[in-house]
Deep mutational scan, measured.
Amino acid sequence: SIVTKIISIVQERQNMDDGAPVKTRDIADAAGLSIYQVRLYLEQLHDVGVLEKVNAGKGVPGLWRLL
């Protein structure tokens, strides 16, 4: 499923980069989806406690990390 793919992308990127959070844009590119589509999935995963959003604010790139 797309959700499983997104989780594995975040996991893979974090492992490659010493646990650093992953940008929404990088996840979207790797999943082959638009940034808006991916954001909806990321928000859902956040709501159920799978991911945390590391930063927030208007015009700030979203950074995500697995919990």
Rank of each mutant, 00 (worst) to 15 (best):
L40S: 07
D26P: 01
G19R: 05
V48S: 11
E43M: 08
G57P: 07
A20N: 11
W64E: 02
S34K: 06
L45F: 01
G62P: 15
D29K: 13
M16I: 09
E43A: 06
R25Q: 13
P61M: 12
L40W: 14
L45H: 03
V10D: 00
V48D: 13
L63R: 11
A28L: 02
A20Q: 10
I2G: 02
I27H: 01
H46Y: 09
K5N: 06
D18Q: 11
A56H: 11
Q11T: 09
S34W: 04
G59S: 09
I7P: 01
A31H: 01
V48P: 00
D47W: 12
S8A: 13
A20K: 13
G32P: 00
L66I: 13
D18Y: 13
T24E: 14
M16Y: 08
G59N: 08
E43F: 06
L45S: 00
L66K: 02
V50N: 00
T24A: 04
K53H: 08
R39P: 00
A56R: 09
I9N: 00
V54C: 07
Y36V: 12
I27V: 06
G57Q: 07
A30F: 04
L33V: 05
L67P: 12
T24I: 03
S8T: 10
L63K: 08
I2R: 04
V38D: 00
R25Y: 05
H46I: 07
Y41S: 01
S34E: 07
D26Q: 05
I7V: 07
K53P: 06
L40V: 12
T24H: 01
I9Q: 00
L33N: 03
S1D: 13
Q14H: 09
L40M: 11
D47P: 00
L51Y: 01
G57T: 07
D26C: 04
H46A: 15
S1L: 10
V54P: 01
G49P: 06
L67H: 12
N55S: 12
H46T: 11
V48Q: 14
I6T: 00
V50F: 05
D29L: 11
L33S: 02
G59D: 09
V48C: 15
T24N: 01
G32E: 05
V22Y: 01
G49V: 04
V38W: 01
V54E: 02
V3H: 10
L51T: 01
V3K: 11
E43S: 06
D26K: 02
A30S: 07
Y36Q: 13
I9V: 07
K5L: 14
L45C: 02
L45A: 01
I2S: 03
G57F: 05
D17Y: 15
G32C: 06
R13F: 12
V60I: 10
H46P: 06
K23A: 13
K23M: 08
N15T: 10
V3Q: 08
K53G: 03
I2M: 12
V48Y: 11
L51K: 01
E12C: 14
Q44H: 15
I9P: 00
V3P: 03
R13G: 03
L67Y: 11
G57I: 06
V60W: 15
T4F: 12
I27K: 00
G32K: 06
R13C: 09
E52Q: 07
Q44T: 08
G32V: 03
K5D: 04
R25N: 07
G49N: 03
V22P: 02
L63D: 09
R25A: 12
A30G: 07
A31E: 01
A30T: 05
T24W: 02
V3E: 05
Q11L: 11
A30R: 07
I35W: 07
